[in-house]
């Protein structure tokens, strides 16, 4: 092996140490930048929406609403959600729970008792009592809260999953 000159040694040492410093700062910097994109935690919860004993009539939509708080960075944002509970029979488990968020552009639909439809005020869409599209631009029926349970105290709870 050829003799390593002092100058070449210094050069190699500078490149080596410089590279080490660069990597040990560069890699964390990338992690720092992409960190918010890596937060994959989905938030889910059972949300109480009312006593089942208060929803006695069959085939009548009972409105409910709840608020979820999201934390993005240091900022907390509250978002309102809502929907309707419809009893299809006397059976306490025979429920249809509809999300009142219009599937077109996320406006909130209202129940119109006279016509027995859910009407969206934004683009004149209407859905039938089961949530199926009757008229207007929505691409699919109203979403449903498929998972629900009734607690021991008789409170109806729905399973909510964020995202």
């Amino acid at each position: 092996m050829a003799e390593l000159s002092r100058r070449d040694f210094m050069k190699a040492a500078v490149y080596f140490i410089g590279g080490l410093v660069g990597v040990s700062v560069g890699l964390p910097s990338i992690a720092y930048l992409i960190d918010p994109a890596l937060d994959g935690a989905t938030k889910e919860a059972w949300i109480p929406i009312g006593k089942l004993a208060d929803m006695t009539e069959i085939n009548r939509p009972y409105p409910f609403s709840f608020t979820r708080v999201q934390v993005n960075g240091w900022e907390r944002t509250a978002t309102s959600h809502g929907g309707f509970v419809i009893r299809k029979s006397e059976d306490p488990n025979d429920l249809l729970i509809i999300n009142s968020r219009c599937t077109h552009l996320a406006c909130t639909v209202n129940w119109v008792e006279d016509e027995r439809v859910f009407a969206c005020p934004c683009h004149d869409a209407s859905f039938d009592a089961q949530g199926a599209v009757l008229d207007g631009p929505p691409p699919r029926p109203l979403d449903r809260y498929a998972e629900f349970r009734v607690s021991e105290a008789g409170v109806l709870e729905i399973f909510y999953k964020e995202g």
Binding site: P28, S29, A31, Y32, D35, L38, W74, E75
Partner: peptide, 23 residues
């Protein structure tokens, strides 16, 4: 409204935020 909270977030919420701000 946000300066203090955003610095706290950098220090404890972001990966290696403590390192970047520390340097």
């Amino acid at each position: 409204d946000h300066a203090y909270d955003s610095v706290q977030y950098i220090m404890s919420g972001v990966a290696f935020g403590w390192l970047v701000r520390g340097i």
